[in-house]
């Protein structure tokens, strides 16, 4: 019995740790933007409700073990006690209520995350910016269609501005995850997707791929740097002024399997822009469809998938 009690104390203290402090290193529990915050609220709400269930189970569990587990004490022993309709209805209905309490905010949040995050209170609404993200073996490529620059393994965003990340994959699937700013989405070779994120403040947020993509997967880490509007504009200008232009052959080299350090390019070839745009058209088309599985048809009609095909030759050295 003592061991059970020890175990109880152990799990409770873990739960306390979870609910109270020590969260600044726990990225998911330290949200730095409205998307992550909505998810954080949902997580905490679910922890409270499920912890309640766990507590009820644990209390009954310990009670029956203490009361009926002692040797040589058969008080209350009733071998034919086979059911109790009222009790059984109760413990069916309580989980139903809890499911409803969880489902409603879940569905609300799902629809809220479809669009750009709402502006933080007290701040004026800012125009969203768009960044095209391509995962390649094994690096992250970021293109800024408005400013025409490209970075690798780091991305700079203006603070307090909704950012729409359009997600593409070259070769294997990956998942684009910046835990402090919000949950992830996959990058898929046959299906462009989008993810809205926003950072409240200036900061450096670590992102990584969450979906295994081969030998160099563990190195698929990137930084999201959030800067003030002025610093952001200055940074773009610096990249344009000081970094080399990206040529098609450099880009093809970049797609070959490797882990690389951060890079930046003052411009990129127009073909890449066309590819991103073409893939985006597909995404727009898909957003109007009710059943996402229909993308199967899309591919069979038109299998020139923009940014994806060129990797075929460069992949031969893949393994």
């Amino acid at each position: 019995m003592k061991k059970f009690a020890m175990k109880l104390i152990g799990s409770c203290s873990l739960l306390l740790l979870f609910l109270t402090g020590c969260t600044n290193r726990i990225a998911v529990l330290n949200p730095q933007g409205p998307v992550a915050r909505q998810q954080y609220h949902l997580i905490i709400w679910s922890v409270i409700l499920t912890a309640f269930i766990f507590a009820v189970v644990l209390i009954i569990f310990i009670y029956v073990l203490v009361k009926f587990g002692r040797k040589n004490n058969h008080a209350g022993y009733d071998p034919n006690n086979h059911g109790n309709t009222k009790l059984e209805i109760t413990w069916t209905l309580i989980p139903v209520v809890i499911c409803i309490l969880l489902a409603v905010p879940t569905i609300k949040t799902l629809f809220a995350l479809e669009g750009p995050p709402k502006p933080t209170e007290g701040l004026s609404k800012k125009e969203p910016i768009t960044i095209n993200v391509t995962s390649a073996d094994w690096k992250w490529i970021f293109r800024y269609p408005k400013d025409g620059i490209q970075t690798v393994n780091y991305v700079v965003i203006p603070e307090d501005t909704p950012v729409k990340f359009n997600l593409f994959a070259d070769s294997a699937m990956n998942s684009f995850w910046v835990p402090e700013l919000g949950g992830q989405q996959y990058t898929m070779p046959d299906m462009p997707m989008k993810l809205w994120l926003q950072a409240d403040h200036v900061g450096d947020y670590l992102g990584r791929s969450a979906n295994f993509s081969g030998r160099g997967f563990a190195g698929m880490q990137f930084h999201v740097l959030s800067k003030t509007d002025a610093d952001y504009k200055a940074w773009i200008q610096t990249i344009k002024d000081t970094k080399p232009a990206l040529t098609m052959s450099t880009y093809e080299d970049l797609l070959k399997p490797s882990n690389v350090k951060t890079m930046a390019f003052s411009s990129y070839p127009k073909e890449l822009d066309d590819k991103d745009k073409k893939a985006m058209k597909k995404m727009k088309h898909m957003e109007h469809m009710d059943i996402p599985e229909n993308h199967l048809d899309l591919n069979s009609k038109d299998n020139d998938m923009g940014g994806m095909d060129m990797s075929n030759d460069s992949m031969k050295g893949g393994k």
Partner: peptide, 24 residues
Amino acid sequence: PNFTIGGITGVMLSLAPADYQYHN
């Protein structure tokens, strides 16, 4: 008790927007 922990974290994972943070 041990399975209940797995069960309640399963419920937590079933909340799709929260799953965006737990997935993989």
